[in-house]
Design a protein around this nucleic acid. Structure first.
Length: 508
DNA sequence: AAAAAAC
């Protein structure tokens, strides 16, 4: 399974190029080629210039792994993942799931329950790294909707010893909704394995139980949010001595200064104290330089997979901008252009910047007689669950959301994302923002990318409309375009323009 | 109040 061609000259400290490619390559650390008939075999992609110690690799074409019944997916997007490994363990790319030495129960889950046929690109590269001793840490970046969840869920399931009735795999997620979504995937994929799991998130009213009354967790996999996991751990209801794999989903946010850094570090240290050796997996579509530098200090000796930011915007999701003279116009655009076409479209998520504007927009649309639901943090867990369920069941077509759903939310019917407000960077240095308002804020590139990634899951068609009001928003949009080098097409507020845009995005 | 989690 491993490639013996790796040269012995490789020292532990040197970065080696783990090239996963369809074409013959002379990289020292070649992982075996993907199958001959992968997408993009016809084209030859240029080798990208080296950047520092990261050797670049020839482009490969990402595969859409998830093929549902009769659905045919369009040509998948190009992806260019750079793999960097340390040490002398050679890794073979997995062209089939059989290559991974998975249990037959797990394979059955992949094929029968998940209906997967073969690994996507990120899975082909990352799974051998996750599953091969000495189980090195991994920092993995991959496009939105490319199958990251499968990577770490499969990693957790295959590393758990089903005969050991104790928690062995943890996954920490930034929101309750994401944790619940991930555990659903785990349950489905692991259906035949007998592996037990539990979701550690704040309970809804029906399931509330004070920590002190809770029996110690025996589930082998625990997926949850940082606060609840920590709470269970400090209440001695969640043992960590058998933990051998710790996953951070949306890892840049979980370890970012602006995110859950403190929680994540404390959880990691607690596990470190009683579990001698465990593997840390960090997955996200985005890792800005700050976070990258930070994680390289906390996690030692790791393998890594990265994508250049210019290649992160999904080509299957077309981006548009619409300049609105005032805020009222934004609401009218949504009313006239979106709801009037809603029957022809799939589902839509409208992102707003604050809880308050979520409420304002919700009220405005409901007052106009439109059927819309809203999700935000300031809601009871019961209501949040209900709103999500209705949306996932397709009962509601348009959902207003704060950045609560910006990351990870996977609903394949969503093909339209509306940025009612552009996401902004929070600048803690300027406390006296009151008078300056937020007009000087920079756009938050990472959140922008995560938001638009809610459309175009697994290579499906999608569109994003950015509603811009005023010079500041126009300027921010320009910065976003520059940052990703992506094209954002301006459309006017006319039936013809909007329809042409949706048509060119393949939505109608 | 930026949002999120959750103290």
């Amino acid at each position: 399974m491993v490639d013996d061609a790796a040269p012995g000259s490789t020292t532990n400290d040197s970065y080696c190029d783990a090239t996963i490619t369809h074409s013959p390559t002379t990289a020292p650390f070649v992982v075996s080629p993907l199958p001959k008939r992968g997408w993009g075999d016809e084209e030859h992609h240029d080798v990208v210039a080296d950047t520092g110690d990261l050797s670049s690799v020839p482009s490969e074409v990402m595969e859409s792994l998830k093929i549902e019944d009769e659905t045919t997916l369009e040509e998948p997007i190009d992806s260019n993942i750079t793999a960097v490994t340390t040490g002398d363990t050679p890794y073979s790319s997995a062209s089939t799931f059989e290559d991974l030495n998975l249990s037959k129960e797990l394979l059955k889950g992949l094929y029968v329950e998940m209906r997967f046929h073969k690994p996507s690109k990120i899975q082909a590269i990352s799974l051998p790294m996750i599953l091969t001793p000495p189980y090195k840490h991994l920092i993995a970046q991959a496009h939105n909707g490319s199958g990251k969840t499968t990577c770490f869920v499969l990693g957790m399931l295959s590393r758990v010893d089903v005969n050991l009735k104790a928690p062995q795999a943890f996954c920490i997620c930034p929101t309750r909704e994401l944790a619940m979504q991930n555990i659903e995937v785990l349950k489905k994929m692991g259906k035949y394995t007998g592996i037990t799991s539990e979701c550690a998130v704040p309970a809804d009213s029906a399931n509330y139980m004070p920590v002190s009354k809770r029996p110690p967790t025996t589930a082998q996999v625990v997926i949850g949010t940082p606060g609840t996991i920590k709470k269970w751990m400090s209440g001695r209801k969640l043992g960590v001595s058998c933990v051998k794999i710790l996953v951070f989903d949306e890892a840049d946010h979980m370890l970012g200064e602006d995110g859950f850094q403190d929680y994540s570090l404390r959880i990691m240290r607690d596990i470190e104290r009683s579990s001698s050796h465990f593997q840390v997996l960090l997955f996200s579509a985005t890792f800005d330089e700050n976070v990258k530098n930070f994680v390289s200090r906390v996690v030692k000796d790791y393998n890594q997979l990265f994508v250049k930011k210019e290649e992160l915007s999904l080509e299957s999701v077309k981006q548009f901008k619409l300049i609105c003279p005032n805020e009222q116009t934004k609401i009218r655009v949504i009313k006239d252009r979106i709801f009037e076409l809603a029957d022809k479209l799939g589902q839509t998520i409208i992102f707003v910047g604050t809880r308050k504007s979520a409420g304002v927009l919700h009220k405005a649309l409901v007052d106009l007689g439109y059927d819309v639901t809203t999700i935000k943090g300031a809601m009871t867990n019961d209501i949040r669950d209900k709103i999500i369920k209705e949306f996932k069941d397709g009962l509601t077509k348009v959902l207003i959301s704060t950045d609560l759903l910006a990351r990870g939310f996977d609903q394949q019917q969503v093909n339209l994302v509306i940025n009612y407000d552009l996401p902004l960077k929070h600048d803690p240095s300027s406390q006296a923002m009151k008078y300056r308002s937020s007009s000087s804020s920079e756009p938050n590139f990472e959140v922008y990318l995560h938001r638009i990634g809610r459309a175009g899951r697994f290579g499906r068609k999608g569109a994003v409309f950015n509603l811009l009001c005023g010079d500041q928003e126009i300027k921010r949009m320009d910065k976003i375009q520059k940052h990703f080098g992506s094209e954002v097409i301006e459309v006017r507020d006319t039936d013809e323009d909007i329809e042409a845009a949706l048509k060119s995005a393949g939505l109608i």
